[in-house]
């Protein structure tokens, strides 16, 4: 690319796209960024009543237990859910300007990551209120590792889906269905230890499970779970698939969108 030879310029593209997304999301709303908390909190309240009170699931501190995995899940599912239309809705730009299209995906994932980061201090406050142990030093190690891992994994998935959907427009519908299925296959509402022995392979095969298990272990028990290693493995593997797919198709995007 003649015009975009350097990394710093691409970083500037990411940063303007990111600040645009952040400004756009809550423009004109009174409560602004608080809305990103409304959805998981309402969902948790419903689940608390359904599982703890009605079905009598025996998990201690169930609302926080759910939120510890639901907040990161929300980041993941928001990004992946927006992925199919990412290149298509930016078609006008892609057709006219020779910028690095991966910048669009990076801005999308970072936007949802920032919204997730806002929930971390909120979660810490909830922990204190509930009288549980507060955050420990392990958070300082675990959170950056998990943030980088989840950003990489999500970015890889977003890039592959966004690229493929430029070719096969069915993916928008397919991704919605898959996300719904994955939500129940991934231990968000239940703990990993509740999964029967003969289905444990699912926890390792589903790229989202190790991440959610690790987030929960860190946030609820201050543990650095060995599942972090599996999550990093999934992230590296996805990037190894996504980067060549993107490299080979990037220049064609202007013809497809």
């Amino acid at each position: 690319m003649m015009i975009y030879p350097n990394f710093y310029q691409t970083w500037d593209v990411i940063s303007v796209l990111l600040s645009k997304e952040i400004k756009m999301r809550y423009r004109g709303t009174v409560l602004g960024i608080l809305w990103s908390l409304a959805n998981p909190l309402a969902f948790t309240a419903v689940l608390y009543i359904a599982f703890r009170r009605v079905l009598q699931v025996n998990i201690e501190n169930y609302p926080l237990f759910i939120l510890s995995a639901l907040f990161p899940w929300q980041w993941l599912s928001n990004s992946v859910g927006s992925a199919p239309m990412l290149f298509i809705s930016n078609g006008a730009l892609i057709k006219r300007l020779p910028f690095n299209k991966a910048a669009l995906a990076v801005a999308l994932v970072l936007n949802d990551m920032i919204h997730f980061c806002i929930t971390i201090p909120l979660f810490a406050v909830f922990l204190f209120i509930s009288g549980d142990r507060g955050p420990s030093l392990n958070w300082l190690v675990g959170i950056p590792i998990l943030l980088v891992t989840q950003t990489s994994l999500t970015l890889a998935i977003v890039i592959v889906i966004a690229t493929l959907n430029a070719l096969l427009r069915d993916l928008d519908q397919l991704v919605r269905v898959l996300l719904l299925l994955l939500f129940y296959v991934t231990p968000v509402l239940y703990s990993a230890s509740m999964v029967p022995k003969n289905l444990e392979w699912l926890l390792l095969a589903n790229p989202f499970s190790p991440l959610m298990i690790s987030w929960r272990a860190l946030m609820m028990d201050n543990d650095l779970s060995p599942y972090i290693v599996v999550a990093v493995g999934h992230a590296c593997l996805s990037l190894l698939i996504a980067i060549p797919v993107f490299r080979r198709t990037e220049w064609k995007l202007a013809e497809l969108v």
């Binding site: 015009i3 975009y4 710093y8 310029q9 500037d12 593209v13 940063s15 303007v16 796209l17 645009k20 400004k23 756009m24 423009r27 004109g28 006008a92 730009l93 006219r96 300007l97 910028f99």
Partner: peptide, 26 residues
């Protein structure tokens, strides 16, 4: 007309976005 512009954002914000997309540093 309209390409690369975000209708909800101000003129200044759009200048920054558009300028960077056109290849300038921020």
């Amino acid at each position: 007309l309209g390409v690369g512009f975000t209708q909800e954002l101000t003129g200044v914000e759009n200048i920054l976005i558009n300028g960077v997309l056109l290849g300038l540093r921020r």
